[in-house]
Structure formats: structure tokens, C-alpha cells
């Protein structure tokens, strides 16, 4: 009987080892599941319009110009030659080259009226010319602008403080941060400097300051990784450098180049 018991215990030891190996395998499989079988989720592209910094354009300037669509811009309106203002009937009659008659000769009042009409026509012509010149100038400047290419920011270069690129990056970070936020201290804070190269790829990220909350740091880094997947190239294909302050309340850019 004793020999049977000892054989049974040996079998139990082997089973324990096999069970441990199986558990470790399952654990490692779960750990690497995401890497072995990446989930291909189609993420709908989100477009952001910086409403706060949207410049208020002249209503007559037309809709914002989309970069690359210059060919589709409607041609400037044809310049209508200034028309002579029609003179009153009386003046016309006065201008009729009729043989001057002593009785029908121009009176001083008629001459004054003609001069007034002439002056009014002249003022109208110059006003019309000024207006057309202004419209043409606006169209020319519109064609020359090298805006960011996104609607809503026709004239922004993307380099100004609070310009649309910084605001766009901030929005993307904020959106990603909303999904990853996690912290364990009371007022966590982290300042990160981001470098985005000309192709829109996040080339470097430097943690400038942190409150020391590890969970918050990880959440920030995850948010940056998530957001950086869809960064557009900076305006003018220049290197972008921006400093962002991450707090549970939100993200604020401190300065950007």
C-alpha cells in the first residue's frame, strides 16, 4: 500500500510541474497576444477646426482657400468699364449742338448744373476704381498666401503662438490623453517637449519635469504615442518643437517654434 501511495505522489509532482508550465505559457501568451495578433481597427479620421483662433475674414473675401486647389479658384470678376453717368434730360438738351440762339442761350443756372453733374460722375468713377482695386488686391494676396492648407485657417502660417498646428497637436494629444489618463497622486503634472520632423513623425520626446507620479507619466507617454501616429507634417515642412504641460485637467502648450 505504501508503494502505491509513493507512486501516486510522484505523479502529483509531475502534474504540478506540467500545470505550472501551462500556466506560464498561458500568461506569456496573454502578455504577447497584442503583439502576435495586432488588432486592425479602422480609426475614423478626425478633423479639428480651431474655432478659437479662427481669423474673421472679410465676408467679401470668399471661402477659405484650400492649399493645392489654386487652379480651382474662380477668376476675378471682369472689370466693368465705368459708365458715363447719364445726364439729366435738360443737360442733354443743353449739350445739343444747336445753333446758338440769343433767346435759347445757356443761362448761368444751366452751366452750374452741368458742372455739378460732372463732379458727381467723377467722384463715382474714382470710388468704383478704388473698390475694384481693393478687390483685386485681396484676390492677389489670397493667391500669394501660404496657409496651412486646412480649412478655417486661410492665412495662418502655423508658426504663430496659438496657431493652428500647435493647437492641432494639442487637440490630438488631448484626445489621446482622455483615453489613457491614469494617476495615483493628488496633483500630477508633467511637462514634455516634443520634436516633430518635417514628415510629421515624432522624432523625440523629452520629459522636462514631472511630479513623480509613475502612473501619470505612463499615461502621458501612452497618449503621446497614440497621438503621434497621425501627426500631419508641420507647416512649411519645418521642424516643430513644442512644450506641452500635461495635467489631469487638460493639456496646455507653453511655447512652440
Amino acid at each position: 500500500m505504501n508503494s502505491r501511495q509513493s507512486r501516486a505522489d510522484t505523479g502529483m509532482g509531475v502534474s504540478c510541474i506540467v500545470s505550472t508550465v501551462i500556466h506560464l505559457t498561458v500568461f506569456l501568451l496573454l502578455l504577447w497576444w497584442g503583439k502576435l495578433f495586432p488588432v486592425n481597427m479602422v480609426v475614423q479620421e478626425t478633423y479639428y477646426v480651431d474655432v478659437v483662433n479662427l481669423p474673421v475674414a472679410d465676408p467679401r473675401a470668399g471661402s477659405p482657400v484650400q492649399k493645392g486647389n489654386e487652379a480651382e479658384i474662380s477668376p476675378p470678376p471682369p472689370v466693368i468699364p465705368p459708365r458715363e453717368m447719364s445726364l439729366p434730360e435738360k443737360a442733354k438738351q443743353g449739350a445739343t449742338p444747336a445753333k446758338p440762339d440769343a433767346k435759347t442761350a445757356k443761362s448761368p443756372d444751366a452751366n452750374a448744373d452741368a458742372a455739378l453733374d460732372e463732379r458727381i460722375a467723377k467722384i463715382a468713377r474714382s470710388a468704383e476704381a478704388r473698390r475694384e482695386e481693393a478687390v483685386l488686391e485681396r484676390l492677389r494676396s489670397k493667391l500669394k498666401t501660404s496657409g496651412s492648407g486646412r480649412s478655417g485657417m486661410p492665412a495662418a502660417g502655423g508658426t504663430e503662438q496659438g496657431s493652428d498646428y500647435t493647437a492641432y497637436i494639442q487637440s490630438r494629444l488631448k484626445d489621446a490623453f482622455r483615453n489613457t489618463i491614469s494617476y495615483s497622486s493628488k496633483n500630477p503634472e508633467m511637462i514634455v517637449r516634443l520634436f516633430i520632423d518635417s514628415s510629421g513623425k515624432l522624432s523625440r520626446r523629452v520629459s522636462e519635469r514631472s511630479s513623480g507620479d509613475r502612473a501619470f507619466e505612463l499615461a502621458v507617454m501612452r497618449a503621446i504615442d497614440m497621438a503621434s501616429e497621425k501627426f500631419p507634417p508641420p507647416p512649411g515642412k519645418k521642424l516643430f518643437e513644442g512644450v506641452f504641460v500635461f495635467k489631469p485637467q487638460g493639456i496646455t502648450p507653453t511655447r512652440g517654434k
Binding site: A8, G11, M12, V14, S15, C16, V18, S19, T20, H23
Partner: peptide, 18 residues
């Protein structure tokens, strides 16, 4: 709980065989 699971599965395998 993981310890419980490991030992449980060891017993399950051993008993299945036995």
C-alpha cells in the same frame, strides 16, 4: 488565486490520469 489555479490543474491532470 494563481496558486489555487496551478494546484487545481495539477490535481485535475493527475486525477484524469489516475
Amino acid at each position: 488565486l494563481i496558486g489555487f489555479s496551478v494546484v487545481s490543474w495539477a490535481i485535475i491532470m493527475f486525477k484524469l490520469f489516475q
